Each structure stands twice: as C-alpha cells, then as structure tokens.
Amino acid sequence: MTINTRHHSKKNTSRPAGKGLHPRNLHNQGYDFPALVTSSPALAPHVKPNPYGDLSIDFSNPLAVKALNAALLNQYYNIADWDIPDGALCPPIPGRADYIHYIADLVGPENTHIKLLDIGTGANGIYPLLACQVYGWQCVGSDINPQSLANVDAVIARNAELKDRFFLRTQLDKNHIFEGIIQPGEWFDVSVCNPPFHASQDEALKSSQRKVSNLARNRGEKKTKIKASNLNFGGQGAELWCKGGELLFLKKMVRESQVYSSQCRWFTSLVSKADNVRPLKKLMLKVGAADVREIEMKQGNKVARVLAWTFFSK
C-alpha cells in the first residue's frame, strides 16, 4: 500500500466525517484542517472557523470542496495535483473511500490481486484512484464522456505509479453498460458504480438546490438560488441524470450483467433511493444471481446502500 496511514486528529475538526465510517477508513476521526493546509496551502483561503469555533470550509462552495478533496488525496493517498473541470461531480472523499473498503471486505482485503471495473468513472476517477492507492488493485474506469476520461488521464499522467494500474475505456454506445467495455476472455473480480440519480436536469437542479438551502439554513443564512450551470454539488450530463433515473439505469445494468456473468465475480452499485432496493433485488434473482447482498454504509446521519450480486455459487 502507498497511502499515508496517519489518522485525522479530532482537534480543530468540524462536520465529523468519521461518524459511522468503516474501521479502515482514514477519515474516521474527521478532518484535520491545520495538517491539510500545511500539506496543501491552496486549501488555506477556504478554511475558517464555523459558528461553533471549529475550523471548517463552506461545503456549499464547489471550489472549497474541490480544494479539500485535492488536499485529502494528496496527504492521505499520495495522489498529487488532483483536479476536475468546473461543473464536474465533486465526490466527498470519506464516503467514496467507504465504498472501496466495503468492497474490499467482499473480495478479501488481504488480496492485492484484484481487478476492479468502475462504471461511469466520471471526471474525478475517484473509486479507481482510491482502490489503487489503498489496496494496490488493478483498475479500469469506463465512461461515455471523452472529456471526463481526458481529465482522469491527466491525473494519472501526473502520478507515475498509477500508469500501470489504472486504465481508461470509452463507452461508445449509451444503450450499453458492460458491452464494449469488458473484452472477450477478460476477467474482473468486482465492478463498482455510482449511478446517475435523477431522471432529468431539472430534477437534479432541484435536489442540489435543497442541499444548498439546507447547508445555508444550518449556517443561519438565507436561501440562495443556484443555476443549472453552477450546481454547487457538481455533476453534469450522465453524471447526475439519465432517462428513467437510477432505477431504469440499474435495471439495465442488472440485465446486462447476466451476459457477462462468467467474466465478473461480483457486480455492485450504490443505490441512492431506498424504494429501488426491493425491485432491483427481485430482478437480480430473476436473471439468475446466486447471491444478492445489501451493504449498509453509515456516514453520519446518512445511510448509503450498496447492492452486490454474483452469478457464482459459494
């Protein structure tokens, strides 16, 4: 492993990222802002005391969140100069790391000979980046957006140790997920996915507006209207929405996984809407899955869900 295993200090932290995180998650003690600023000075302008006197950032400011992510990746995962284009999805590192840790539990955390496929890696490439650095896995990231992949490729180029472990592939057909990505005779131990949540741009904008309003209310501020061109939580095009939303996307994934059932041991995906879990489990069993698991990840007051299914018997 190439990561820095120092944990965050509880001193001068806020929004405790660590509440309920996986035991191996390096962020389970919250954010150590003084240490992060020391290692990444670009974060300094965004750090200031919150109403409780703790150091924090404005989590509704996409530039501040991006600077925090870059600092976390630099200090704790030895990933230098991580960046994303304006408007791209800016993932919270502790929660994304949790997904990878729970996937490691699924395939065996001691097993370094794991090959992971990330469906919709986006411009951030976060899951393969973490999997490479924490567990030393081989990773393939796929996406339908060439510009997103170009950005991830630039991050890989700036981090030489990733060049032999993290590879990118373009999905040329929006009607397929695995076809055109998984090659004949190829084997993956696990696939991961953070699917588009929403059915339209308008739905995504309303969701982001609610998050911004909630953050403003928590700070005692007035509501602030945001524009589609400036989604504070990032995400564009296929990153946030698709026709039919999350459920239709994941139903397509489950059906197509049957075709590649002998080339991937575990298929997994985040599921943001609890109501989607039951119909997806039903479909997984219908297409012949031998084992279906629901993994709960507790992150603060939020519970995230991962569905995992395999066509291999125990």
Rank of each mutant, 00 (worst) to 15 (best):
F178V: 06
R217F: 12
N25M: 09
T121R: 11
Q209S: 13
L55E: 01
T13M: 07
S9K: 14
L231C: 01
Q29I: 03
I295Q: 05
A70L: 07
Q183T: 13
A131F: 03
K19M: 14
N194I: 07
H176V: 10
H22Y: 05
R255K: 15
G244M: 08
I57R: 01
L231W: 01
D118L: 07
L26S: 03
F197N: 06
N230F: 03
S200W: 12
I57D: 00
K211P: 00
A131R: 05
Y102W: 15
I177H: 05
K10F: 15
Y127H: 04
L285T: 14
L43P: 00
W266Q: 03
R210K: 15
K223V: 08
K302G: 00
K273T: 13
N159R: 02
K227R: 14
Y52R: 14
R210G: 10
V37Y: 09
S261N: 12
F312A: 12
F233R: 01
W137T: 01
G30L: 00
K227I: 08
N301V: 02
A238M: 11
I114N: 03
D54T: 10
I114Q: 05
V47D: 03
F312I: 08
S148N: 02
L307N: 05
L130D: 03
W82R: 00
N301Y: 06
Y76T: 09
S40D: 13
I177Y: 04
L240D: 00
I181G: 01
G53R: 07
R219T: 00
P184F: 10
P128F: 12
L26N: 06
W187K: 13
D105R: 02
Q75I: 06
Y260P: 05
R305P: 02
P41V: 01
L172W: 11
Q133G: 03
G220R: 09
K48C: 10
V140N: 06
N214T: 14
I119A: 11
V190L: 08
F249S: 11
A80M: 10
F197M: 12
I100T: 07
P16M: 05
L205K: 12
Q201S: 14
G237I: 05
R255S: 12
L280G: 05
F33L: 08
S313K: 13
P91C: 01
E256Q: 14
L205Y: 06
T121F: 09
I84V: 15
P128C: 02
L307V: 05
D105V: 11
N25Y: 02
V292G: 01
L270S: 11
Q258G: 15
D143S: 11
K302F: 00
F166N: 03
T224I: 15
A17L: 04
G20H: 08
K252I: 08
P109H: 06
P92Y: 01
L129S: 02
H8D: 14
Y76W: 10
S148R: 04
D189A: 12
Q29S: 11
Q171A: 09
D86Q: 08
D143W: 06
A131S: 12
K206V: 13
A42I: 07
S262F: 07
A71W: 00
F233L: 02
G122Y: 04
N276F: 07
F178E: 09
K211T: 11
N78A: 13
M1L: 10
S257Y: 06
D118H: 08
I84M: 01
S272K: 09
D143K: 07
L240P: 04
A71K: 02
K211E: 10
G234M: 05
E246G: 03
A17I: 07
L172A: 13
D81S: 13
W266H: 09
G18T: 05
R210P: 07
N111A: 01
